[in-house]
């Protein structure tokens, strides 16, 4: 009955991997949200140069994180997050604050969607 032990070991591994990946996705999504929020807070303080830089850094970080998330999450969702992140720095201008607010909210919603696609039940 070696097979039973193999099966039980695989089930245990799957459960552990699921919990591990769950934590990883949550943590990654939280870090992405924090990056975006930091960049947006600079814009709200009218420090647009720092905001642009922070948005660019957030986009670069997101690209690296999404590459790792590709084994867990549907690629189209990750592409959308990256596309939206890439344009955010262009909105960080004094006369574009309302657009920046809209795009920041959009990217937060996309990160939520991305997180829920793995973490959500049913």
């Amino acid at each position: 009955m070696k097979r039973n032990w193999y099966a039980a070991a695989i089930l245990l591994l799957l459960i552990l991997a699921l919990f591990g990946c769950n934590d990883y996705v949550r943590h990654t999504a939280q870090s992405m949200r924090e990056d975006v929020q930091l960049a947006y807070s600079y814009a709200q303080q009218s420090d647009f140069a720092a905001s642009r830089e922070a948005y660019e850094k957030a986009a670069d970080n997101a690209k690296i994180r999404c590459r790792r998330l590709e084994i867990l999450i549907r690629r189209s969702l990750l592409d959308k997050v990256n596309e939206t992140m890439a344009v955010l720095s262009s909105y960080a201008q004094p006369d574009n604050l309302s657009d920046l607010a809209v795009e920041t909210a959009r990217v937060n919603a996309l990160i939520d969607q991305m997180e829920n696609s793995f973490v959500g039940c049913f």
């Binding site: 009955m1 097979r3 039973n4 039980a8 695989i10 089930l11 699921l18 084994i71």
Partner: peptide, 25 residues
């Protein structure tokens, strides 16, 4: 569907196989 991550097939395959082994036992 290359859009889907590879684990979306691998995890269910191993899950089904493990359950089948335990079920047959």
């Amino acid at each position: 569907e290359p859009d889907l991550p590879l684990v979306s097939s691998m995890v269910p395959i191993f899950l089904i196989a493990s359950l089948e082994v335990l079920n047959s036992s």
